[in-house]
């Protein structure tokens, strides 16, 4: 028994643990009635996904993921929810048949996705496994070489989003 446990690498245990946390907290995001609890569970899910990025040698992406999602986007969500003063009492619920229909169609979607992606099992890791791919040097070379134009376009997108959010959020536009 102990030799069997020792044969499995520790990263496998970390994968199982992080997957379990991500899956459970993702379910709690949908299941919990209080919107603030939903967002807090979503933050835990994002941390678990950042742990997956670390396991997959995407160190820089893991840090950026925590900064952007847990640090910026989720704070924005929490701020808006608290500003609107939403809680369990204001939460309204759909009819029970609609809930069953939603869960049923989601399960059908899961079956379709798994069946469609089944052929990828034959895919194995590339022969010379490069563990430095997720480091900032490699990513920067790719981003500012091959993908320079999309990078500039995304900066325009962020600027447009910022201006748009300010214009929408203004109280009265005259």
């Amino acid at each position: 028994m102990s030799t069997l446990l020792l044969n499995i690498p520790v990263t496998q245990y970390m994968f199982y643990f992080l997957s379990f946390v991500a899956f459970l907290c993702a379910i709690m995001v949908v299941a919990s009635k209080n919107p603030i609890h939903s967002i807090l569970y979503l933050i835990i899910t994002f941390f678990a996904i950042a742990g997956h990025y670390l396991l997959l040698n995407a160190q820089f992406l893991a840090v950026v993921h925590i900064i952007v999602y847990a640090g910026a986007i989720m704070v924005l969500f929490l701020y808006v929810i608290m500003m609107m003063n939403l809680n369990e009492d204001t939460e309204s619920h759909k009819h029970i048949y609609l809930k069953f229909a939603a869960v049923g169609s989601a399960l059908l979607l899961l079956i379709t996705l798994v069946a469609a992606l089944k052929g990828a099992e034959k895919l194995t890791a590339a022969a010379p496994l490069n563990t430095n791919v997720g480091l900032i040097k490699n990513l920067g070379t790719t981003l500012f070489g091959e993908y320079l134009f999309p990078f500039e376009v995304s900066s325009i997108l962020l600027l447009a989003a910022m201006v748009g959010a300010i214009m929408i959020g203004k109280k009265d536009i005259k």
Binding site: H52, Y53, L56, N57, A58, L61, L123, T124, A125, A126, P128, L129, N130, V133, G134, N138, L139, T141, T142, L143, E146, Y147
Partner: peptide, 14 residues
């Protein structure tokens, strides 16, 4: 990210 690591290709991470 998973596919990027399995292929040692940085494009997917971009």
């Amino acid at each position: 990210v998973a596919f990027s690591s399995y292929h040692s290709d940085a494009s997917a991470q971009v």
